[in-house]
């Protein structure tokens, strides 16, 4: 027996999901961060964030189609992390490093937090 491994499949699927997001196709939730609104797919949010996993697996909150985040969350930091979820690329802007890391802590995205922390420490050094 043998099998063919399509090495690009995961990134091809993610690119298509991001195309669906940018065209607002089958998005099923609006995330409200201060006065900004972000449309997304619950499944992608749950797959990437511990906080969204907890929210959308909750029997009562799971069916909500709009979620307001804590006002302390920075909309630009959230936007960077939402793009990361759909592209695997984390934009690091000097003036937003801490906001990005704090948003990742809030969203319970530990691996991103660790990576941001290491990046901040190395750039300080």
């Amino acid at each position: 027996d043998s099998c063919i491994q399509f090495t690009r499949h995961a990134s091809d699927v993610l690119l298509n999901l991001n195309r669906l997001r940018s065209r607002d196709i089958l998005t099923d939730v609006t995330i409200l961060v201060s006065r900004q609104q972000f449309r997304a797919h619950k499944t992608v949010l749950m797959a990437c964030s511990g906080l969204f996993y907890t929210i959308f697996t909750d029997a009562h909150k799971g069916n909500l189609n709009a979620i307001s985040l804590d006002p302390k969350v920075d909309p630009e930091g959230f936007s960077i992390l939402l793009d990361f979820m759909y592209t695997s690329r984390l934009t690091l802007r000097d003036n937003l490093l801490l906001a990005t890391m704090n948003t990742a802590i809030y969203l319970q995205m530990e691996h991103v937090v660790d990576t941001c922390h290491r990046f901040i420490k190395s750039s300080d050094a």
């Binding site: 027996d1 043998s2 399509f6 690009r8 499949h9 298509n16 065209r23």
Partner: peptide, 21 residues
């Protein structure tokens, strides 16, 4: 234990959804 030999396909695996129709 059955050895399965895996062939790596580096090319695109699925259709690409256009930015708009």
């Amino acid at each position: 234990y059955e050895a399965v030999n895996t062939i790596q396909e580096l090319g695109r695996s699925i259709h690409e959804i256009p930015r708009q129709d």
